[in-house]
Write a protein that binds this DNA or RNA. Structure first.
Lengths: 141, 141
DNA sequence: CCCGACGGTATACTTTTCGACACTATGGGC
DNA sequence: GCCCATAGTGTCGAAAAGTATACCGTCGGG
């Protein structure tokens, strides 16, 4: 997913859709934003424990990008061991309708491991994909 | 953006967010879905004309993935020259709240080329990104 | 002393996504 | 004949995203 930093788009009526997706589309960003909605403030390792399989490197990177894009505020406490808090900015909170819509759709349509598949799942969708999802390889169904 | 074909996720509460983003996060998918919402049926080159800079190759690929994921229906007419129509399935239409939320947020927060920048734009956002958005390089503002 | 926690950084590498280019058969218009 | 339109396919490479591994200083607990 390309990252757009408030560059101007070649606008067609759909550009805002594309731009929004580009801002929040990093692999872990949706989850990071979601968890910050659920729990107002999180520290680095608290966030890390909520994201299965994320690496330290990637979490740092995505948090920094979200901060750079103005969605997340990062507060450093001058302590040892280090204490850093992450929370949503006003701009980040303005994404709530987006994140809720993504969550609502996913709840209704995505099969969760161990859950009984809902009727909403597309019938023809049982065939395995050509390539695995971007998750640990062993997770392939 | 990884493609998830109804594989089971290692579920944490945010998984539905991640899964939904993975399904619609291809570079052109948001725009394709958006335009199919706006205009019930589109042929291939009609869609193509609505997406600035898309290549034939990429449009075909993203349409096929959306079809494979059950969002888009493809109707072939046995004619020459070829006539193919694309429209949203019921499952595709169920994405409307997601696409509308993405569009609404983008409308309020993303600067469009030629438009006066709104106050909502983050102040610090003027600095160029480390790397360009995934679009033709010369398109950088 | 060793281990784990904290919140990272650095580097190299792998995987994934996307784009560029050439090509396809048919028919209509010039 | 050439060009354009239709809706693609095939191949390769570039760019981007993401991962793996090692390392860092300080402190507290065992």
């Amino acid at each position: 997913m390309p990252r757009i930093h408030h560059v101007s788009l070649d606008c067609s009526p759909g550009c805002p859709v594309e731009a929004t997706l580009a801002l929040i589309g990093g692999k872990w960003k949706g989850l990071v934003l979601y968890h910050l909605f659920e729990e107002e403030v999180l520290r680095f390792n608290e966030m890390r424990r909520r994201l299965p399989n994320v690496t330290q490197r990637m979490l740092t990177s995505q948090l920094r990008e979200l901060e750079a894009d103005g969605f997340v505020l990062r507060k450093i406490y001058p302590e040892i061991p280090p204490k850093v808090e992450y929370r949503l900015s006003a701009r980040g909170r303005s994404l709530e309708p987006v994140i809720r819509a993504l969550k609502a759709w996913g709840d209704a349509h995505v099969v969760v491991k161990g859950a009984v598949a809902k009727g909403a799942v597309a019938k023809g969708a049982g065939t395995p994909p050509k390539r695995s999802a971007h998750s640990p390889k062993r997770a392939v169904a």
